[in-house]
Simulated assay, not measured.
Amino acid sequence: MSFRYDFVPTPFGDALAVFSDAGIVSFDLSEADDPSVPWLLENVSRRLGAVPEDAPGSGDELAHLLDAYFEGEPIRFDEQVRFDWRLIDGFPRVALQTVCTVPWAETMSYGEVAVLAGHPGAARAVGTACRLTPFSVIVPVHRVIRADGSMGHYGAHPERKRYLLDLERDAAAER
């Protein structure tokens, strides 16, 4: 199987998108200012056991969907993009697939996601799955919040989570 990568623009900077023949494998909003730094590719290469090839333009379809999303359209990425879930399995995969069902502009607690994923009491495991997702933004882990209604974290960037929640809330209010 071959893997290819492209950089896709977001309001947070360019994201590294890695694709296989089966679909998107990873969408990484790096902690780095420059996502082209070698460690990003080294990390995904190590996890895949293969070196992705640079394929400019391979992320164009995803870029168009992201543009629409960031303009306030209620995009459900799992209905528009084929996912290749090879980098995550077991309950974390089930949890993230469940997160995909959280409606646009709505939120659900970690515990509620755990119940829907068939593992009541696994709220912390849902939080770990959200933190480790290989699909930043396109699996809407930003819609998963704490049981007390507070936002919680979004990796090292809670301001991104706030941005995404506000974007969806404001766009929904305008509809």
Rank of each mutant, 00 (worst) to 15 (best):
L66W: 06
E31M: 14
F19M: 01
G90D: 11
V25F: 05
R4W: 10
R47P: 05
A117V: 04
E71C: 00
R160P: 01
A125D: 15
V102A: 01
K161A: 08
D14Q: 15
A95D: 10
T10G: 06
A156N: 14
G127L: 04
E174R: 08
E168Y: 00
Y69M: 08
Q80S: 13
G111D: 06
M151R: 03
R146K: 14
D33L: 15
P35N: 15
P74G: 03
T128M: 09
N43Q: 04
E53G: 10
R169P: 00
H119P: 01
A17T: 09
W39Q: 07
R169V: 03
F83W: 07
Y5S: 09
P103N: 11
D148E: 01
L165K: 08
P74L: 03
D28W: 15
F135I: 06
P56C: 08
V81L: 06
G59A: 05
G57F: 12
P120C: 06
I145R: 05
A172N: 10
L116S: 13
D60C: 14
C130Q: 11
L132Y: 08
A68G: 07
I75C: 02
G72C: 06
S109I: 14
C100A: 12
F70S: 03
A63F: 13
V141A: 05
G90L: 04
F7S: 10
V94L: 05
V102G: 01
R160D: 04
L116R: 15
P9N: 10
L132W: 12
C130V: 14
F3N: 01
V18F: 08
A55K: 12
P92E: 03
F19K: 01
A68L: 11
Y5V: 00
P134S: 01
S150H: 02
T101P: 00
Y154A: 03
A68F: 07
R124S: 11
A172E: 10
G23A: 06
T101R: 10
A55Q: 14
L62N: 05
S150Q: 04
I145K: 04
L132F: 09
F77L: 03
R143W: 03
L132S: 10
G155F: 13
T133V: 00
A95S: 05
L41Q: 07
D78H: 08
F83M: 02
E106R: 06
V81F: 03
S58L: 04
P52Q: 11
E31Y: 10
S109Y: 12
L165G: 06
H157C: 15
E168G: 02
S109K: 08
A114W: 07
D34A: 12
V99D: 03
Y5D: 14
T101C: 03
E112M: 00
P35A: 13
S58C: 15
R47A: 05
D28H: 15
M108W: 01
Q97T: 00
L29R: 08
R175C: 02
G59N: 11
T10H: 02
T107M: 01
C130T: 09
S109W: 09
D14I: 07
V137Q: 04
Y154T: 06
W85M: 02
R46M: 12
G121A: 09
R175G: 06
I145V: 13
I138G: 00
E159V: 13
D89H: 08
V8I: 13
D166R: 12
